[in-house]
Design a protein around this nucleic acid. Structure first.
Lengths: 161, 161
DNA sequence: CACTTATTATTAATAACTCACAATAAGGCT
DNA sequence: AGCCTTATTGTGAGTTATTAATAATAAGTG
């Protein structure tokens, strides 16, 4: 068995590098986020519990918040949705959310790096020092688009808000 | 007096155009949002109550939600903040938020119109039909930057959290 | 002016987190 | 290997922002 620590060790090392203790809770949360990118705290709890059943929701919130502050996780908050987490940090990619089904896709930055980091300020605005530019594309994914175009023939897929 | 309906009438007309009745509550909310752009529901309630004291919070939520659906208002949700509303719709401008003091500035779109509406999809991603691209710049405004650089000499301006 | 029904007010409920403190266990030390 | 300090987690309650369910009200129509 020289395989079961693919990510385990990497996460453990990263935690130590940030001065954090390596606990099974943190490892379970990190693994869960890695397996389920773009997931809310509740789903991460559920996923992490498959390998650590006694984990509590509050611990997940604490761990997610702390790891996000350390930039080991990235957090973003789509409209009308709880906060979502992912392990892809460092690269500044963006997100596209389907306003119909909520699906989230990663979108690489158009410019390649630090892309939209140069806003055009209004004359009267006091410019800020921009650290990150979160771009949130909102649209309709192909599947939802097709589903909507079908005339209300199939009475199965109703979807009133 | 030919001045007091500057916006009143315009809002009333817009409401009728959208098939909505013209109520003092809606007018009060619209006026409040216009006077206080980038404000959360609670502040809008407070502002609107100066001219309509019996207005309730729930009405504000209902009105804001409805007017947002009609695109008479625009809503955006900065991280760690309740939803904010503004009357600038149609133009696709963006927002810069100071992560220290929470101040929000409008940022006009770099490209002029429909700017970032062309994401670069990953090869394996299913492209969505993008409708809006919300760009959220996060940084530190000049004032907060100065306040932070001062060594803790002035014990007045503490600001934890 | 009366009437119909969209709006608003009232009240209660929910979702997503946060807080305070007690219980537990990582990692250093011997 | 076992002990000890203190970071981390668990327990339980509390908060904030928002939505839901009806009853009361009032816009706009005839």
């Amino acid at each position: 068995m020289t395989e079961h620590f693919d990510g385990q060790d990497a996460w453990a090392a990263a935690l130590r590098a940030h001065g954090r203790r390596v606990t099974k809770q943190r490892l379970a949360v990190l693994a869960a986020v890695e397996r389920h990118p773009h997931s809310p705290a509740e789903s991460i709890l559920a996923a992490a519990r498959t390998e650590l059943p006694e984990l509590t929701a509050q611990s997940v919130y604490v761990v997610l918040g702390d790891l996000t502050d350390l930039h080991m996780l990235r957090r973003f908050e789509p409209p009308h949705s709880p906060a979502l987490y992912e392990t892809r940090v460092g690269d500044n990619h963006h997100h596209a959310i389907c306003i119909s089904c909520g699906r989230v896709e990663d979108v690489d930055c158009a410019v390649g790096h630090a892309p939209c980091l140069t806003p055009h300020w209004n004359p009267d605005a006091k410019p800020m020092t921009i650290q990150i530019a979160d771009v949130m594309y909102q649209g309709i994914c192909q599947e939802c688009q097709q589903a909507q175009q079908l005339p209300p023939h199939s009475p199965s897929q109703e979807k009133e808000k």
